[in-house]
């Protein structure tokens, strides 16, 4: 099995040490570096070209969200898993917008961490079940209070299929080949989905999918 190369970014040594220990004991995982602040993370990401960066948000010298944005901008192949204490959607959405593909809470179990790293390394999205649950609850509750129509009902079956694939982290190309349709068709579907759901970006779409429980 090919090794998943991991970069750890957290300003707390003890946490990094614990995590390193935990991950290196897993077969197929290699921790290639540790960074204690945002700038160091960017440098090490460029140096080691890891498959996955496990990133804390609160770090000195550039926070984790900003570091994520810069890393993903430069190296789209690097997957970022945010590991944070925050479970408010503002943090989740901003992390997604910055280009992170996974979002974990710091009270995550070992199994979640491993699953997240695997998923992101394979180009999929992953969210802490707790995050998914909170976001879904919020969404259902808000929907109930507003009493409005569930916009999900407006989507066709094909659109729902594409929504799920996009939310899972697939690129347009991957979606096209998975469904055996043209790139142009996928693009049109995506535009329609965003319009129907009144969303403006792929991160918002991912957040929506998490809220709806389409992905987790």
């Amino acid at each position: 099995m090919e090794q998943v190369r991991i970069l750890l970014a957290d300003d707390h040594n003890i946490l990094r040490d614990g995590m390193r220990l935990l991950l290196e004991r897993q077969p197929g995982f290699t921790v290639v570096g540790e960074a204690a602040d945002g700038r160091e993370t960017i440098e090490l990401a460029a140096e080691h070209a890891p498959d996955v960066v496990v990133m804390d948000i609160a770090m000195p010298n550039l926070n984790g969200i900003e570091a994520t944005r810069r890393i993903v901008d430069k190296h789209p192949g690097i997957g970022v898993v945010i590991l944070s204490m925050h479970y408010d959607e503002s943090y989740v959405l901003r992390s997604l917008k910055a280009g992170a593909r996974g979002y974990l809470l710091k009270d995550a179990l070992k199994a979640e961490l491993i699953a997240a790293i695997r998923a992101v390394a394979e180009g999929r999205s992953f969210f802490s079940p707790k995050i998914s649950r909170v976001l879904q609850e919020d969404y259902v509750e808000a929907l109930g209070r507003k009493g409005g129509d569930d916009t999900y009902e407006l989507l066709t079956d094909r659109e729902r299929e594409i929504l799920q694939l996009i939310a899972e982290g697939k690129t347009n190309k991957e979606v096209a080949s998975a469904l055996n349709v043209s790139l142009y068709t996928v693009d049109t579907h995506r535009t329609h989905i965003l319009q129907k759901l009144n969303l403006h970006s792929v991160p918002e779409l991912i957040l929506y999918a998490v809220r709806k429980g389409i992905i987790s």
């Binding site: 707390h12 003890i14 946490l15 614990g18 935990l22 004991r25 609160a58 204490m85 710091k106 070992k110």
Partner: peptide, 21 residues
Amino acid sequence: LHDEVGQAFSAVLMESENLLD
């Protein structure tokens, strides 16, 4: 509270996972 105490708890969590491992 968030950064220090929270992270300390987080580390305890991680270490107990390690021990369980």
